[in-house]
Design a protein around this nucleic acid. Structure first.
Lengths: 119, 119
DNA sequence: AAGGAATATTCTTGTGAAGGAATATTTAAA
DNA sequence: TTTAAATATTCCTTCACAAGAATATTCCTT
């Protein structure tokens, strides 16, 4: 049955919900990059770049490959799959006319009557 | 061409990246609810519930319907569609073996050589 | 071995956001 | 017209987090 409710980690969203980090993710669409490149292209200072990359990595959004002096960061697919699964699980909810306020209104009305019937 | 990069609003993610608000969203899967119901079921104080609902509304995640005394909140579909579009736009990136570190490594190597060739 | 890249870490400071408590506002009920 | 219910708003305090600056660490180059 499609009644499952996939869990979406708030931490993942939190990691993405910061402008610079979102820009990093967007930048890495085009392929892996080093810290320096990322900092340059986004106009970030190196330390801040490193910090944001750390947050993204800790939340499984990026992975690192150490190449001598450099650290090459690239996107991981897992969090996007998770997001996809989560969002998809809302599709049915949305279209299935669960907008049905009417039902809920009648429900509320029912409780009201019950109250006024019970002094 | 599939080269478009849909914009994902950081504000939307930010709104969802808070545990109580995420719980509210999950709760509203099952249909619209009043502030009081939401507060009750999630063990929130009414003012905090109102505040979180305000944030979610301001970011287009929820909509309100005033019904006399009550305010009935329900999910909106737009942000979920936006999320879906955004996440989908990464699918190609992921599978298209853009993992190709190799390419980038050679690129880096190229620059190195260029440097050492230019005294 | 020394100097210089590339990256990470630490410390400090400022700001925004969340909770608590109290209060205002609107609408229904007595 | 009071009173009570449902919800929103305000004020205050606390805490996390991002930026800045300085420094540590690692690895390459000469």
């Amino acid at each position: 049955m499609p009644g499952n409710k996939p869990v979406m980690e708030v931490a993942t969203l939190s990691a993405l919900a910061e402008p610079n980090r979102m820009q990093i993710v967007e930048l890495l669409r085009d392929g892996p990059l080093t810290v320096g490149e990322i900092a340059d292209r986004l106009g970030l200072r190196q330390p801040q770049a490193s910090k944001h990359l750390k947050v993204l990595s800790e939340n499984g959004i990026l992975e690192v490959k150490a190449e001598a002096n450099r650290r090459i960061y690239k996107l991981r697919s897992e969090p996007f799959q998770a997001l996809d699964t989560w969002v998809k699980s809302f599709q049915s909810v949305m279209e299935s006319r669960f907008d049905n306020l009417e039902e809920y209104l009648r429900e509320l009305q029912g409780k009201e009557n019950k109250n006024q019937a019970n002094p």
